[in-house]
Write a protein that binds this DNA or RNA. Structure first.
Lengths: 120, 120
DNA sequence: ACCGTAATCAACCGAATGGTTGACAAATGA
DNA sequence: TCATTTGTCAACCATTCGGTTGATTACGGT
């Protein structure tokens, strides 16, 4: 499970981590601050942050004793690209399929079986 | 881990399942056909398809003995919406931050220290 | 009716996950 | 120097995950 895309998807598969990401879009936060709303130990949150960091979704700096967590939004593009690519391919395929069905309908009206309401 | 978004992200966190989705954008396929390229048992692939189905990414129909797997591309929108929402929020925040830093630079040239607490 | 094909169910296994508690490390402020 | 704050490391536990093999179901084809 070593490729970056898998790590990003896996990181966001957890609701708590997704919520952390959501909160980090508002402002950077320390592990302690991130932990407050959740009913889990600070150690658990520390682990979550580590997962996000290894996925490239966040980075940490040092500032006195605190290590503020910072969202790296660029990594989102990795996912978006993957999704959009196949999303588009799938759409194109449906359009081709609809075209074929439409042609069948023209050639032999009444023989185009199931798959109603396909066109658009 | 019951919410739909988590299931979609988790489903796509596996490279094999991502590859299956990619292939399903080209054409529907049976479990057996899907299994061929991979060096795993048909049962394992059947499980993968089940995961994709429970995530709402694919559906199955019945056609003689075969149960062709069909990609449901609409579910991608769920992810895209989530991603885009926070992506945009993050971008906006950076713009605000840049504005603040720019203002600090104007007011006190040379006093715009390192990334102090910026947000609201 | 019987056999073959397609796929799922069931039980099991090892590795990874998400959580815990307890001990430790690093930087600050008194 | 010493206590405090902040966070990580380590060991452990229960559950989930991806994989296996073996048995079983659901359909045609002949």
């Amino acid at each position: 499970m070593s490729d970056p895309l898998s790590r990003v998807f896996a990181a966001l598969a957890d609701p708590t981590r997704r919520d952390m990401v959501a909160r980090l879009t508002v402002a950077d936060a320390t592990v302690g601050e991130l932990a407050e709303p959740y009913d889990v130990s600070v150690q658990a949150v520390s682990k979550h942050v580590k997962v996000l960091e290894e996925a490239g979704l966040v980075s940490r700096s040092r500032e006195a004793q605190r290590r503020p967590v910072h969202l790296e939004a660029e990594v989102f593009d990795l996912m978006t690209k993957w999704i959009e690519r196949y999303r588009r391919q799938a759409d194109e395929r449906y359009q081709r399929l609809d075209a074929v069905l439409a042609r069948m309908q023209e050639d032999e009206p009444g023989a185009a079986g199931s798959r109603e309401g396909a066109a658009s």
